[in-house]
Design a protein around this nucleic acid. Structure first.
Lengths: 109, 109
DNA sequence: TCAGCTACTTCGTGTCGCTAGCTACCGGTA
DNA sequence: TACCGGTAGCTAGCGACACGAAGTAGCTGA
């Protein structure tokens, strides 16, 4: 993947992370690893941490510091009510966009 | 729509415009109007023109200046072979993203 | 004459992901 | 003991992109 996906991730990566957190609490390192497994081969570590800080400051997640057996303590994030609401708004916006795109793809060729 | 869609448009708006041009040649004012009809209520005019300049400089489109009955001459853009190739690459990237998102939406709740 | 539509251009701003670095804790190995 | 690699988080500077606001210019009709 290249620059194309990088640009597309702007705005969607946030929703992706919130969607992950809606399933289960998680910490940054874990999320990064999971994303890489899913094929987002070149998502930068720093990006995830910065994103987590952002959504924390917006009050979309709760944070708990949990000691790790191997390494420094983990910051475990979990989606709160406000975050869940925001996630739904995200899905609405995403559906809107995806619908237009799908129509364009069909009509365009 | 608000800031959410603005961020999501980064990277995708380019593909949207290219997809439009793959159906038929068009000029900026026309594209803006069409997008607004489609529900992209707050796409800024300046954004489209800047985008068109960008894809022209990358050699994805051919340009022809056509006089208008009412107003200054139109710059009509049409997708060339390079643009068509790029559009396919865009669709591949988009599919990848959309697939992950769809999976997340299903699994997440 | 001047408002209003058509059509394109440009500049400054904010957001976001990337790059590239850093700190710090732990285990195993040379 | 010294060092490396894996785990875990943080930060500063950068480039790309959409937005907002303003401007230029051509045409029509009141």
């Amino acid at each position: 993947m290249g620059k194309l996906v990088t640009e597309m991730l702007k705005g969607t990566l946030e929703g992706i992370v919130l969607a992950i957190l809606s399933g289960r609490p998680a910490y940054g390192y874990e999320i990064t690893a999971w994303l890489r497994e899913q094929g987002f081969s070149d998502i930068a570590e720093g990006t995830i941490y910065a994103l987590l800080v952002r959504i924390e400051q917006r009050g979309l997640v709760d944070v708990e510091k949990v000691p790790s057996e191997k390494g420094p303590p983990r910051k475990v994030y979990s989606l709160n009510d406000q975050g869940r609401e925001y996630l739904e708004e995200f899905w609405r916006t995403w559906s809107f966009l995806a619908d237009r795109l799908e129509q364009l793809r069909k009509g365009g060729k």
